[in-house]
Computed example of a mutant assay.
Amino acid sequence: MGWPERRRRAAWIGAGAAALVAGGVATTLGGIVLAARQFPDPVDDGPDPLLTDPSDTRSSVVATADGTLLHVETSLDLDEYPGDEVVVLVHGWTCSTRFWNAQMNHLAGDRPFIAYDHRGHGLSEMGKAKVTVEMLGQDLEAVLASVLPEGKRAVLVGHSMGGMAILSWAAQFPSAVTERAAAAILVSTTPREVVQQQLLTPANLPAYTRVVRPLVARSFVSTPMPLPSNKLTSRLTHYMALGPGARAAHVDFSDEMISRGSPKSRAAWGSALYRLNVVAGLEALSVPTAVVVGSDDLLTPPVHADFMAEALDRNGVLLEYSTYPGAGHMVPIERAPEFNQLIDDVLAALTS
């Protein structure tokens, strides 16, 4: 075979491989959209008053180590409350402090709390530095050092990327765990392989899509594409982030919050999370810790919660392992009354 013929053959093979990849990507994306369209309609039973924006909070900013300003919301009784514990709410990827509306409304006037926006989320600046998983923990340390009243200890509540922030913090600041933390609640989260082990891709797709599924997953989290809030995105949000029996008020609230997010920030953090490994933080978490997951969570399925619970139990710090039947990724929204009670129970256990 001559050189020109070999080049033509290589070109045909390359074109065939590219077509196979393109077809696999299209089939995978189409399968996800079809699964979302076939998902049950949300339950339209009216608004959820717990999700209204809290009125009795104080806004401020905290400067991180590199000078980026983070938006912080605190309860009005933060400094005056006589108790020793402060609830610190750390939201997840593509969300904001509004994610915790149901918890802030529940705690207001009863227990002090701190909530903040990750850099590039909500009202926080993005900053100029490339975002990393280590930065999640460093930013949490900046908030605690600046806002947590002296002599108080944090009950850290982290959802999704917020849980990863807590584990990143514990890995980098192990001495601060015993000094500044009283307990932790890890919700719908994982210390590793968050993108790689998601279950969004339907299992019944053709075998030829398997090779491109990691590419689709990585592209999904790292592409800076605007996400409007409409009927299709609402369907996708319901499928991806909430359980099949979710309330329409919860789906709409989640979809609208996600659509507000910066595409640049979403892509930057999505890329960073592809390399997630904060298992060391799980081992360094030396305070009583509860693990929470929804049985139908496709983004951080229960296998992650199982792994965390086993490690925490082995280290003698597992406080509770709660699975919410039928709930998806947004447990604090979908199961707010039960989840709020869990926070109350953790606080009560610290004083008993």
Score class of each variant (00 low, 15 high):
254 S>K: 01
295 S>T: 15
297 D>W: 03
32 I>E: 02
22 A>M: 05
260 R>T: 11
265 S>E: 05
138 Q>T: 13
302 P>S: 12
332 P>C: 08
328 G>I: 09
115 A>G: 07
219 S>V: 13
175 S>Y: 07
311 A>L: 14
276 L>I: 04
295 S>W: 01
74 T>N: 02
181 A>D: 03
335 R>G: 06
11 A>V: 15
340 N>W: 02
133 V>E: 08
238 H>R: 12
332 P>L: 07
255 D>S: 10
138 Q>C: 08
15 A>H: 04
210 R>P: 02
203 A>Y: 04
64 T>V: 11
80 E>P: 07
306 D>H: 12
221 V>C: 05
214 P>H: 04
213 R>Y: 08
19 A>R: 04
304 H>I: 02
131 V>I: 10
198 Q>D: 12
284 A>Y: 00
254 S>T: 15
73 E>R: 15
304 H>E: 10
125 E>M: 03
256 E>Y: 01
8 R>P: 09
320 E>W: 10
244 P>Y: 13
289 T>Y: 07
1 M>K: 10
112 P>I: 13
282 L>V: 14
128 K>L: 04
112 P>C: 06
47 P>K: 05
125 E>N: 03
113 F>Y: 13
214 P>L: 06
130 K>C: 00
81 Y>P: 05
229 S>L: 00
36 A>I: 07
272 A>S: 13
142 A>H: 10
169 W>H: 15
137 G>T: 01
50 L>V: 00
329 H>L: 05
238 H>D: 06
159 H>L: 11
107 L>C: 04
31 G>R: 03
47 P>S: 11
253 F>A: 06
330 M>A: 08
145 A>W: 02
109 G>H: 02
145 A>E: 08
232 L>W: 11
236 L>V: 14
45 D>N: 11
137 G>P: 12
168 S>V: 08
44 D>Q: 09
275 R>C: 04
85 E>A: 09
31 G>T: 11
63 A>T: 15
278 V>F: 03
187 V>F: 02
77 D>T: 15
47 P>V: 14
2 G>V: 14
217 A>I: 13
213 R>V: 15
221 V>H: 04
269 W>I: 12
286 S>F: 00
318 L>M: 12
277 N>E: 09
334 E>Y: 03
63 A>L: 11
21 V>E: 03
74 T>G: 05
120 G>C: 11
260 R>C: 01
279 V>A: 09
181 A>T: 14
67 G>A: 02
265 S>T: 06
212 V>H: 04
97 T>D: 04
216 V>P: 13
204 N>Q: 13
112 P>M: 03
19 A>V: 00
323 T>L: 12
170 A>D: 09
141 E>V: 03
300 T>S: 10
27 T>S: 10
335 R>S: 12
326 G>M: 10
333 I>G: 06
153 R>T: 11
281 G>Q: 03
